[in-house]
Amino acid sequence: MPADLKCKIAGVEFANPIMTASGCAGYGEELAQIYPLSNLGALVTKSISLKVRPGHPPPRTVETPGGLLNAIGLANVGIDRFLKEKVPFLEKQKTKVIVNVAGSTIDEYVEVCSRLNDCSCADMIELNISCPNVNEGGIEFGTSPKLTEKTVAAARKVFKRPIIAKLAPNVTSIAEIANAAEQGGADALSIINSVIGTAVDIDSWQPLLTNINGGLTGPAIKPIALAMVSSVYRKCNLPIIGIGGITDYKDVIEYLLYGATAVQVGTALFVDPSAPLKIVKDLKKYLKEKKLKSVTELIGKVRR
């Protein structure tokens, strides 16, 4: 019998634990040209804000050893166009859809979440309270336990299906923020968003990103993210979606062993849009070799 890859978070069942990370798969249209999205556990959309955001002027990305620094600036179509132009496509996809939400005030989060509550296509929402490269909003909410709780609680009031809080690594104690999100009514946690970083051109002495700071992603941040997942797993009761540098099935297993229930693949999609398919295939093989019936048997099983 083939190993079972199904997993469940806050009552929502996923075909497998492999999701796309927000900002790394757009609204799904481009990936769907390459393979059916039903291969994914879930598609997590780009952050949706109340208004259209054109994003930062280029250059927006810099390649770093084992990673990518980006300052896209939450470029997105805004909630109106998302509902009108992107949802009809997403409704046809046979995968779970998690809509990532960003705001620069709590009211903005509330309005976007409330509009999404009426959109049955959004199986869950993921609150981006941790974007490191916009000046207003984003990370400000996710670096203070109080604001985290307040933002999640405000979204909780208007969105009736499960809410995931996506946490920033740029904090002193991520477990404290995780507990605040739980207090606010979050059903799950995505750990981690990108790590603040920067880079400079040594000839012009100018920063390589127009925005100066960016978010570091890719394999370079995997050990950081793993440690954070491990820390939160031990100190908080919410299910965890692990994010950071996942490129192949081995990375996924590490995250599950440290306590993640599912994972999101981000930067690796830029290198290989089909990475999730390969991961799923290899994960099945691994489970069979280890004689495990379900992928859930790996969760939190690290031998300390």
Binding site: C24, E30, I34, P54, P58, P59, T61, I72, A75, F270
Partner: peptide, 28 residues
């Protein structure tokens, strides 16, 4: 020409400014 992390339109890293305002992805 642009540096393109993904090349398929999902990362929004390769954008160029348009004369009419806003940005376009060089890759797609």
């Amino acid at each position: 020409e642009a540096l393109m992390p993904c090349g398929v339109g999902i990362c929004l890293g390769c954008v160029v400014p348009l004369k009419a305002g806003g940005f376009a992805r060089v890759c797609c």
